[in-house]
Nucleic acid binder design. Sequence first.
DNA 1: TGAAGGATTTGT
DNA 2: CAAATCCTTCAC
Length: 193
Amino acid sequence: MQAIEQPWFARSPEAVAPDLIGCLLVRQGADGTLWRGQIVETEAYGADDPACHAYRKQTPRNAVMFGPAGFSYVYFIYGMYHCFNIVTEQEGRGSAVLIRALALLDPPADPALSLKAGDRLAAGPGKLCRYLDIDRRLNGLPLAPGQPLWLAHPPPEDGQPFSLVQTTRIGLSQGAERPWRWYMKDSPAVSKR
DNA sequence: TGAAGGATTTGT
DNA sequence: CAAATCCTTCAC
């Protein structure tokens, strides 16, 4: 697996978000267990974007968004879910890409779970974090091999061609008109059409 | 110090 | 459509 290096993330979130579709997210648990998923849905949150947590000013919660690219930004929402983001751009600009959905590569250990939930165990930012055991302990970590989370380019032989759909983001009260959501067309793991 | 609201998900 | 559930931010 070819790991994605830090400079690749040091671009605008609107550039990184669509490029991430088809890439692999790797989660290494504390016991060494590996989970892998293909990213099928992302959203960009820019520094000049009213929907972005870093839009107003730096606070303890959003601090890592102002740090260097290629780090994790994990926050807690609605009292019960976590969301996983990748920090983008140069240090000092608060921006990130939200990973919204994965198509899991390794089938769940529990076959009953697989049959029941199908391929939608990681269809949505909250479900994705619940399945991969991502919470605020994983906030502010570098995304590199050997860490709990990192990313990889799709294997060349496995790179199935796909169509990318660009549309508006989900669940926002501000900045809802910006077309900064991307997903893999026809993927059953996308959170919403 | 308190109140409002949130980048979600699920079930009614 | 509303509940679950709690952290963060902003106003006073």
